[in-house]
Design a protein around this nucleic acid. Structure first.
Length: 432
RNA sequence: GGAGAGGUGACCGAGUGGUCGAAGGUGCAUGAUUGGAAAUCAUGUGUACCUGCAAGGGUACCGAGGGUUCGAAUCCCUCCCUCUCCGCCA
């Protein structure tokens, strides 16, 4: 969430930054100036009466109860108190309106983020590795998986419907091996602390990361009698949600920063609005596994930390020998809460194109303001909001797909990347 | 699921309608003492918002939200969370 004061004081600047995402984002701010003024007036009116009332209360405490002076004074104060409550109600109402607007406003793209409306305007930053060449027609992962009897969509459909998959044998082990490999790399070499979180969270956590209230339709909600969205339970769409909120409401000490967590979780997404997209294979599922990296840091260190985290995600692809590229997302293609995002895209031979396998974002203090993530720069200093950074490292299902496709052989078998073999019982390939 | 007990500042803990932003302690900071440290003593030590050039002034916050009252940490209601016992259970 953007800071009200900053928005009002720099309205034109904020509007032009948001305008780079889309016109609607900027237009939402139009009424804020006036609302902020009404808020200030109501606060002044309410507080001046509260001050009078508090002053009179000292006198009331001294007057004998039931005395004529006491009764007369009490009647006067009734009026004052009623007025104060009226103005306080106005404050509450106006602030709710302001919140409503601000909650729906996305983060501002940084100046270094390129202009653009969609994926076609993203900028390629780097390409790593060689495009694998085949002396046969490379097969899509679902054909490879079916041939090897490790990947089954029909049986998953019997259990859960469309957009689920079942892994068997070496396929299931490959999934598990990837999770282990990624966690070991990040905790062992990149300095992250592994964390296991709940997969079911209350709405307040989803508000913290910016998924609620605007994107409820993307989530799986648990049926229950919660009175509102924020108290309801949801399946997490990413580990970003529980991990980012882990220190909500706390005041972290500066020397503990940066905080760096690596978490494996399954992720659940309703994929509302994506009907017809990626319906074949396991590119887009209602449930998938992901290893997520989260860093909490200071504003000053954040840019460097974002580069570092992105680099950590890239190392996974490089150790696995997977051809990929890094994209800098344009303003129009970034997620709601992000101010700068790199996507890593892995090469899929069957599609003859790169596909997203990781998204590494720097949120500034946008999430921290919602999730109440603060630190104290030094012992006596005022608390400040942290900067949050996170990224997939990596989406496990898509990594499995990339391995199947990039390491496939003419006979339908799939070689196991060197780095993964210790996790696969030493086998060098998956064969029938 | 049943019964009960609780949620107070960085932490522990007192406080059942007024002078309570909140006793006391711990921790922390500064100073004194010391060759240095420990111990001791003194002083200080929350956050957010409004207002002001500033110094300052004001308001709110005792799990969250409502209510009663001139006045609520204290009384009432709803919710959330923690703990204990019983039941059930991986």
């Amino acid at each position: 969430m953007l800071d009200l004061r900053h928005v009002v004081d720099h309205l034109d600047e904020v509007k032009s930054a948001l305008g780079r995402r889309n016109a609607a984002a900027a237009a939402a701010l139009d009424s804020l100036d006036e609302l902020a003024r009404r808020r200030r007036e109501a606060i002044a009116a309410s507080e001046s009466r509260a001050a009078q009332r508090n002053k009179a209360n000292e006198e009331m405490a001294r007057l004998p109860k039931g005395s004529p002076e006491f009764l007369a004074r009490r009647d006067e104060l009734k009026q004052l108190s009623a007025e104060q409550k009226e103005f306080e109600k106005t404050v509450t109402t106006v602030e709710a309106e302001i919140q409503q607007i601000l909650q729906g406003v996305p983060n501002m793209p940084l100046a270094s983020v390129p202009d653009g409306a969609g994926a076609e305007d993203n900028v390629e930053v780097k390409v790593w590795g060689q495009r694998p060449s085949f002396d046969f027609a490379p097969r899509p992962h679902w054909e490879l998986g079916a041939g090897l009897q490790i990947l089954d969509f029909d049986r998953a459909a019997k259990l859960s419907g469309a957009r689920f998959s079942v892994l068997f044998g070496a396929g299931a082990r490959l999934e598990r091996a990837l999770i282990q490999f990624m966690l070991d790399l990040h905790t062992g070499e990149h300095g992250y602390t592994e964390v296991q979180t709940p997969f079911l969270v209350r709405g307040t956590a989803l508000f913290g990361t910016g998924n609620l209230p605007k994107f409820e339709q993307d989530l799986f909600k648990i049926q229950g009698d919660a009175p509102d969205m924020l108290q309801a339970m949801y399946l997490i769409p990413t580990a970003e949600v529980p991990v980012t909120n882990l220190h909500g409401g706390e005041l972290l000490e500066a020397e503990k920063l940066p905080v760096a967590y690596a978490a494996y979780t399954p992720c659940f997404r309703s994929e509302a609005g994506s009907a017809g997209r990626d319906v074949r294979g396991m590119i887009r599922q209602h449930q998938f596994d992901k290893v997520e990296l989260v860093r909490l840091t200071t504003a000053e260190a954040a840019e460097e930390q974002h580069e570092l985290l992105t680099r950590h995600a890239e190392v996974v692809l490089e150790r696995l020998g997977l051809h990929y590229r890094r994209m800098l997302l344009c303003a129009g293609d970034m997620g709601f809460s992000s101010q700068k995002t790199y996507d890593l895209e892995v090469w899929l031979p069957s599609e003859n194109q790169f596909r997203e396998i990781s998204s590494c974002s720097w949120f500034g203090d946008f999430q921290s303001r919602r999730a109440d993530l603060r630190f104290r720069p030094e012992p006596k200093a005022k608390p400040r909001f942290l900067h949050t950074i996170n990224g997939s490292a990596l989406a496990v299902g898509r990594t499995l797909i990339a391995i199947l496709e990039q390491y496939q052989r003419a006979d339908g078998s799939v070689a196991i990347p060197e780095a993964l073999r210790p996790y696969m019982g030493g086998i060098e390939a998956i064969k029938v």
